[in-house]
Design a protein around this nucleic acid. Structure first.
Length: 580
RNA sequence: GCGCCCGUAGCUCAGUGGAUAGAGCGUCAGGUUGCGGACCUGAAGGUCGUGGGUUCGAGUCCCGCCGGGCGCGCCA
């Protein structure tokens, strides 16, 4: 699919660099300096950020990659490219004192220097006017800074948490809840239209077991073998309306069922409340029962049958998943005629696609990896694009308290609830904790350590930078100083240039995060930006009534920094306080 | 046994095939007659589990092994 158009977004710095290098390559090919151009060689132009500042602002290893296909030494290719690049270069770093019109920047070169370095790198140095122009854009439209235009991309469904309402959410569910919501936020920043979806079963035997457990407590009887033992079951028993059982019997209904349904609705309200405190709000709640009731499961099975991927054996109906690479075939209808959970999954896939989604994402625990293949295979068998059905498996979180692992069994009643966790360490710290780690890695979460370290958590470092800037801006207003409306010359100083170069990188971070469907780079970047600001703050006095012009430029830069910090934190669902 | 995930600093974790592998915490040594010291500067600390391979170049890709986790139901 074509990339989303971004009419109101300026190109990122690296996109500008890629374009310039590609043009230089084509030019070198047309003059014969290089034997072939970009359209003749299958090597993509890639630009990276050198680790060391002396290597410039941007670098490419294109000469190294072209050495083999062009049958030339990397050094010779680098020479040819840099001399072709010379037309893209405008020496002289400062723009001060230059007579330029308002739209003159568009025609000017984005680089001041291109040099060959090392075994075949080309290093580029960025012109100040590029920074000025981008920073001006930040101040002009802070809300859209770094983000792709809303709704410009694919329509994506993200299903996560999906815990059955048989007990409160545990810290074990936190992983999926944060991972899913963070993914949604990052996709939205990348321009996708996202639907947050929660799937659950409110009519299965688990619900009946919950009801039976509540009744057992009321009858002062032992909890059934498959029942639930948590404290919350006792709470439910206390809150159960007195006439609930009598009403069920009057309707000739199994009391355990009736009580189970009441209890699970109650539990679901609690789950929604917990999610709300996490900052997670679902758009759609779908029950397994509703899929059957609306015929989705039945129709999906017919679709598989029509495509010739079903067969009967031992009285059951099987999907030939092995045809699509699975280990074994999978039962869709049991020999007793009951559909399997897998059958519901198949129906759900068709139901989701019927709502017009381009892409389905499932956030599952690592223990579900065995079911990934069958669902994707069934989608393929029904004629959908397998690549459009994606499962993200979260790693395990081992919660440790006082050196021992805390078990997380709802049945045994030994678990820490999400609410308890958040009461101990706070939503911002918890969000940062999960955002800064890959979704699929296993994590040790020492609750006491997290509490102790919460004051040292990097999230506060970033928030502090934001609050510090807010304080500076207040101070400036009191002194009658305000940010410059014109960024010209505002980044000429070393301190300014260093900070500005970090700020301007933000859109690339968001772009990469959306593409990778990960947030670790966002937390890393936010920390880096906060560090860059603190260093700037050390070296450059911002509020200085004796130097109003310089103050104005620095205030503009600092305001752009604040906007970027706030945007990055918002992307993670974390607050950006003006004071703390 | 087969399959999937993981293994990077004392701890918790980052690291689109690129230049001397990073951050936070912890440890040690320093810093403010200035806009928020929840800050800043510096140091110590690594056979990137291990052995091969691909490549101009591997923490990153491929194969084997070791260690840990999770799966391998007509359960959900």
């Amino acid at each position: 699919m074509p990339p989303p158009t971004k009419p109101d977004q300026p190109p990122t710095v690296r996109a500008t660099a890629r374009g310039a290098i590609e043009r230089a390559w084509a030019a070198a090919a047309s003059t014969g300096a290089l034997p072939a151009g970009p359209d003749a060689v299958d090597v993509a132009v890639e630009v990276e950020r050198p680790a060391k500042p002396e290597h410039g602002d941007l670098a490419t290893s294109l000469p190294l990659k072209l050495a083999r296909p062009l049958r030339m030494s990397p050094a010779a290719i680098a020479e040819a490219l840099t001399s072709a690049l010379a037309t893209e270069i405008e020496p002289g770093r400062s723009t001060r004192g230059r007579d330029v019109g308002a739209d003159a920047n568009a025609a000017r070169s984005p680089f001041t220097e291109a040099t060959v370095a090392g075994p075949g790198f080309i290093n580029l140095r960025l012109a100040d006017h590029v920074l000025e122009s981008l920073l001006g854009g930040v101040l002009a439209s802070p809300a859209t800074w770094g983000r792709a235009p809303a709704g410009s991309g694919q329509k994506v469904n993200v299903e996560f948490v999906s815990a059955n309402p048989t007990g409160p959410l545990t810290v074990g569910n936190a992983r999926g809840a944060f991972a899913g919501d963070l993914l949604c936020r990052v996709l939205e920043a990348g321009g996708r239209r996202v639907t947050r979806e929660y799937y659950f079963n409110d009519s299965g035997t688990q619900v009946r077991n919950l009801g039976a457990s509540v009744l057992a407590i009321l009858a002062d009887a032992p909890i059934p073998e498959d029942g639930y033992n948590g404290d919350y079951v006792g709470d439910l028993a206390r809150e159960l309306p007195d006439d609930a059982v009598a009403d069920a019997e009057a309707r000739h209904e199994d009391p355990a069922w009736a009580v189970g349904r009441w209890a699970s609705a109650r539990v679901r309200d609690g789950i929604e409340a917990s999610l709300a405190t996490l900052g997670v709000a679902f758009d759609v709640w779908t029950t397994e029962g509703s899929l059957h009731a609306a015929g989705w499961v039945e129709r999906a099975i017919e679709r598989l049958r029509a495509a010739g991927h079903l067969y009967e054996q031992d009285g059951a109906l099987w999907f030939s998943s092995t045809t699509f690479g699975d280990d074994k075939d999978r039962v869709v209808l049991r020999s007793n005629g009951e559909p399997t959970y897998f059958a519901s999954d198949i129906g759900y896939v068709t139901e989701k696609f019927s709502r017009g989604f381009d892409h389905l994402v499932y956030i599952w625990g690592a223990d579900h990896h065995g079911t990934v293949a069958r669902v994707r295979n069934a989608a393929e068998a029904m004629g959908y694009d397998k690549a459009a059905v994606e499962m993200i498996l979260t790693g395990w979180v081992r919660f440790i308290r006082d050196g021992v692992e805390v078990s997380m069994s709802k049945r045994a009643g030994t678990f820490v609830t999400l609410d308890e966790l958040l009461g101990e360490i706070g939503v911002d710290a918890a969000r940062w904790f999960f955002a800064s780690r890959g979704a699929n890695v296993n994590i040790d979460f020492d609750i006491e350590l997290a509490k102790k370290q919460s004051n040292e958590n990097p999230v506060y470092y970033v928030q502090y930078a934001h609050a510090r800037i807010a304080s500076i801006l207040r101070k400036a207003a009191e002194s009658g100083l305000s940010a410059a409306g014109d960024m010209r010359g505002a980044v000429a100083g070393d301190a300014e240039g260093t900070l500005a170069r970090v700020v301007v990188r933000y859109p690339e971070v968001v772009e990469d995060a959306a593409a990778a469907k990960e947030t670790q780079a966002v937390t890393t970047y936010a920390t880096e930006l906060a560090t860059a600001f603190h260093a700037f703050y050390r070296d450059a006095k911002v509020v200085d009534p004796a130097e109003p012009a310089r103050s104005a430029g620095r205030l503009a830069l600092v305001e752009a920094t604040r906007i970027t910090l706030a945007s990055a934190l918002a992307l993670l669902g974390i607050s950006a306080p003006d004071a703390m």
